[in-house]
Write a protein that binds this DNA or RNA. Structure first.
Lengths: 260, 260
DNA sequence: CAATCGCAATTGTCGGACTAATCCTTGCGG
DNA sequence: CCGCAAGGATTAGTCCGACAATTGCGATTG
């Protein structure tokens, strides 16, 4: 058994929109919510590759016993994994880990599991490629369709980022919120599920940059440029500024990864 | 109870990559796989809006009884919905339908549920906006990174589409497969989960066009143009051709929606 | 009137038995 | 010797009935 659910596994509870980063805000889930915790455990084990693709997670009774939960709770956990495309269950064959191409890598929980361990450089690159494609267009739409309320909250985020810096959790949270607001303001319902993946990329960048300390460039000017363009309803300007922002973040992030 | 699971609900079994379209290929699942069927039932009821946002799906025992399944199976179905962001369960409060912004609209099953009933024009527009942003970039990457094997399969799809036309299931399948292959060939793991949403948009287009019959333009020339550019490793050409393809599909689709 | 307490509704968990599907072996017949 | 069919064994899927934990809300009390 590559698992174990002794105390202190720190449920993780992603799903909101935050990724582990601020995983401190656990209300008081002192117990009795096992299938979620177990789903996290198994999810991490699979996404990290500790359980190889094609492997059989076989023996519901035995596994549930090993994790010290009932078979029902174990099954509910597996259903969650199946719903996210990580595994599939068939009678007699057991539940097998599906190939990565079937995984829903944009799901908030899957992303959290992917970044729970050391981030994979190739996947980070893919995520930035996605950002580079999507976010400039999102910024353009946001500039053209944003409401005053959305703009006001964006201003607040920018202010917070400037005052708090990205070295403290509140600053990072404001950063994530700013990018999420742009997606909201784009008014495109199909874009909303991409929020989590963009937040993940944002977090990786700030995390690695603050870990390395110096030698990285300041992302604030570009953020401000995006905001200004959105305020002026300048779609082209917002797209261009966002493009610069992402290019810079991408370069710095990979420089940081290379060094570590 | 707005539900019922008498025979003939036709499980639906999405998840592969196909959307309902060819929902005929049900092997022999004559019974005994309830939680999946019930998840489809509830999912459709929620996504279609028959169960309004904020509503309480309360009373696991009663609901399970009404659906004529055990509480365990019902709970597993609800876990699936929760994993896709449709509902959340809390003791004493019941399981409530979350706001649409929390739904994972890119999940294959959620998409299938969204298109199981009459498609919502606003969401179709959002989907095409997403395609317009993502797919030209995907085509560019595919042109630059494709393998020979991928190219060969693309050629096969194009040939099939030409011979079979989009009026028969095989032709539509080839169409979906072609777009999926482009994503695969892009070599970007983060793009793969977008396959289902693109397939959904593709299906809506072909479905509506074939329903209306005449007055729509032929998408084959643009498909061929994309393929030729990918063959020549011409990134710019592939992106441009894909852009034309999507613009045309978008226009024709909305013309068809407006007429119906 | 406000703060606290307790109740009851509802999900979460348990375990243990039975059902259905399916792979694999074994044996039969050609 | 080979093909095919029957049966066994393995594993997920379902069901049942009970108990535990959580928590919103009303009742009670200062």
């Amino acid at each position: 058994m590559p698992f174990s659910r002794s105390a202190g596994d720190a449920d993780g509870k992603p799903g909101e929109q935050g990724l582990p980063d601020e995983f401190a805000s656990q209300p008081k889930n002192s117990g009795r919510r096992f299938h979620g915790a177990v789903a996290n455990l198994l999810g991490r084990a699979i996404v990290s590759g500790r359980v190889p693709v094609g492997e059989r997670l076989t023996g519901e009774i035995a596994n549930a016993e090993a994790l010290d939960i009932s078979r029902s709770a174990y099954r509910e956990a597996v259903q969650v994994l199946a719903a996210k495309g990580l595994v599939v269950s068939k009678p007699k064959d057991g539940t097998r880990v599906l190939p990565r191409s079937r995984w829903n890598m944009l799901d908030p929980m899957v992303l959290a599991w992917a970044f729970a361990e050391e981030p994979d450089a190739a996947f980070v690159r893919d995520l930035f490629e996605l950002r580079a494609v999507v976010e400039p267009a999102v910024a353009r739409m946001a500039a053209e369709r944003r409401t005053e309320a959305q703009l006001a909250e964006m201003r607040e985020c920018i202010g917070l980022m400037g005052r708090k810096t990205l070295h403290v959790p509140e600053g990072r949270k404001a950063d994530r919120r700013f990018h999420a607001l742009l997606i909201e303001a784009s008014g495109n319902q199909a874009m909303i599920p991409l929020t989590a993946s963009i937040a993940a990329a944002v977090d990786v960048t700030t995390l690695l940059k603050s870990r390395l300390g110096s030698g990285t460039r300041d992302p604030m000017p570009d953020h401000i440029a995006v905001f200004d363009a959105v305020e002026l309803r300048d779609g082209d300007g917002a797209a261009k500024a966002m493009e610069r922002l992402i290019t810079l973040a991408h370069e710095d992030t990979h420089a940081a990864i290379a060094k570590s």
